[in-house]
Amino acid sequence: MLAIDGGNSKTDVALVAADGSLLASVRGPGTNQEHHGVDGAMRILGEIVAEAAAQAGVTSEGLVARHISSCLAGADLPEEEEQLAAALRRRGWSLTSAVANDTFAVLRAGLTPSPGQPAWGVAVTCGAGINCAGLAPDGRTTRFLALGRLTGDWGGGWYLGQEVMWWAMRAEDGRGPDTLLRPATAAYFGLPTVRDVAIGVHLGRIARAELLGLTTVLFETASAGDTAARDLLERLAEEVTAMAVTAMARLGLTGPGALGIPVVLGGGLLAARHPLLTAAIERRLA
């Protein structure tokens, strides 16, 4: 089986034998079809699959595995899942293929079901963006559209990077309270002021994608006790909890006797396990 976990910032591909042994494992760049288009995503994925096939001693020209199980960012609607599954079939790497949203990969990876029991629970992933998926014991699933502000989302590196800039800029020009985010943001880009950062982004000298790195600044300033940074982490914890609890309610898992629901946290921001953010989430879930 060819297993694919394709995210916004990175993609993991594994080739697994019928007995479950790992034959090859390769990490490559992100393959979100929303950013690269379906054909572009397949081209990037093709390079990663070729490397995995070579690592396992299998030719990448033609059949690589019997089945592809893929969890892909950007597979947000049933028609997008089918479009991506069809694109995988056209590559000829396998006899059959299945596509799901990449949030289900976080759920699958984080669950440790008891022998003979079905795997079930809720997963929230927070990397470049934020999403949540739930799986009930009877197999029912739920998740969110997760298309950004258009669909009510807040959180993930894209949002937090912009929020850090917002607070830092307002502190610098006098519209808002001072915050450690101001000097830390300028220093992160090696520039004298936040204004220089904003102009650099506006003129294209700094890629907007580089704002994702400001999550590091956020964690560091929050650890130093900065109020604005800590408030942002608290808001992110609130969003993570709101998604998880809503997914539970949709699946009928809330109410009396609802303790012990597995909740998996994944994606770069949550996997970092920053103590302030993790504690805020655990406190709200409890």
Rank of each mutant, 00 (worst) to 15 (best):
G7E: 00
N8S: 15
V13C: 15
A14Q: 07
A17M: 01
A24G: 09
Q33D: 13
H35S: 07
G37Q: 09
V38N: 03
D39S: 01
D39H: 00
M42Q: 00
M42K: 01
Q55I: 03
Q55V: 01
G57I: 01
V58Q: 09
H67P: 07
S70F: 04
G74E: 09
L77N: 10
E81N: 11
A86P: 09
R90E: 15
G92V: 07
L95S: 11
S97C: 14
V99I: 14
T103C: 07
F104Y: 14
V106S: 10
P115W: 05
Q117E: 14
W120Y: 09
T125F: 02
G127M: 06
I130S: 07
C132R: 05
A133I: 14
G134Y: 01
A136G: 09
P137K: 05
D138Y: 09
D138K: 06
F144P: 13
T151M: 04
G152K: 12
D153L: 13
D173M: 12
D173Q: 04
L181E: 03
A187Y: 08
R208C: 08
R208V: 14
A209F: 15
E210G: 03
L211H: 00
L211F: 09
L212T: 06
L212N: 11
V217D: 02
T227N: 10
L232V: 07
R235L: 11
A242N: 08
V245H: 04
G257C: 11
P262V: 11
A271H: 14
A279E: 13
R283A: 11
L285F: 10
L285K: 07
